[in-house]
């Protein structure tokens, strides 16, 4: 769920940038520390960045007939943890804007906030909570929760920018309308992506046990 270039008014662009930047900087700081400890981590991070980019560019068949794509962040957060995911997805989102004109530079803050920070964070919480009971369930819910939270946050961001009428109540009404409309495509996508994440992560666990998950 990318918010396209120019879709938000300048004050909202600035607001989401202000919210997203500290988290991304913290992620960058963590990455830097990692690199200083082990210079080999650089290549690993670079390839993870490529993996996130390609994963989010995968096309999934969706019900409406159009092609939609998963965010890939549900998988990323299990493999790399929330702060590194925030840092890497902010770069992946910038690259999507600069290579595909998908998303945008002015809306980078808003997109990073929903797709790179809040969505993966809640996915991570779901994963941590369910890990003890059953791994596949934890994988499934991590990806589904990450996807759904991203969709809820994006709807809220759009509702704040385009309230039905001025005031808090207008925002809520708008949010409910956006949630209702986007549910048509986002709910099936979340389910498909969650199945995809389970299959992918189970393969990784089964055949590459040396890869550690958070």
């Amino acid at each position: 769920m990318h918010i396209m270039e120019g879709f938000l008014k300048p004050e909202w662009c600035a607001f989401w940038f202000a919210l997203a930047t500290p988290v991304v900087i913290y992620g960058a700081w963590r990455v830097k520390r990692e690199i200083e400890k082990d210079p080999k981590a650089k290549s690993l991070l670079a390839v993870s960045l490529g993996f996130i980019f390609v994963l989010s560019a995968l096309k999934l068949p969706s019900v409406t007939g159009s092609c939609s794509h998963p965010t890939g962040t549900g998988v990323a957060v299990i493999l790399f943890g929330p702060s590194v995911t925030a840092f890497l997805s902010s770069i992946a989102l910038l690259y999507q804007a600069l290579l595909l004109a998908h998303g945008g530079i002015t809306t980078l803050g808003a997109n990073t906030f929903s797709m790179g920070i809040v969505g993966p964070f809640f996915g991570f919480l779901a994963y941590k909570a369910l890990k003890k009971f059953s791994l596949p369930v934890a994988f499934f819910s991590a990806a589904a929760v990450a996807d759904l939270t991203t969709y809820v946050i994006t709807s809220l961001q759009l509702a704040l920018a385009f309230p039905a009428f001025p005031g808090i109540e207008g925002v809520w009404i708008s949010a409910i309308r956006f949630l209702g409309i986007f549910a048509i495509t986002q709910l099936p996508i979340a389910v498909v992506e969650a199945f995809l994440a389970v299959a992918l992560l189970r393969n990784i666990k089964a055949y590459s046990p040396e890869v550690s998950t958070a």
């Binding site: 991070l45 670079a46 960045l49 490529g50 980019f53 390609v54 770069i91 690259y95």
Partner: peptide
């Protein structure tokens, strides 16, 4: 710069 360039190559 390093990570971004290496990441671009990886992509």
């Amino acid at each position: 710069k390093e990570i971004m360039l290496l990441g671009y190559r990886a992509i």
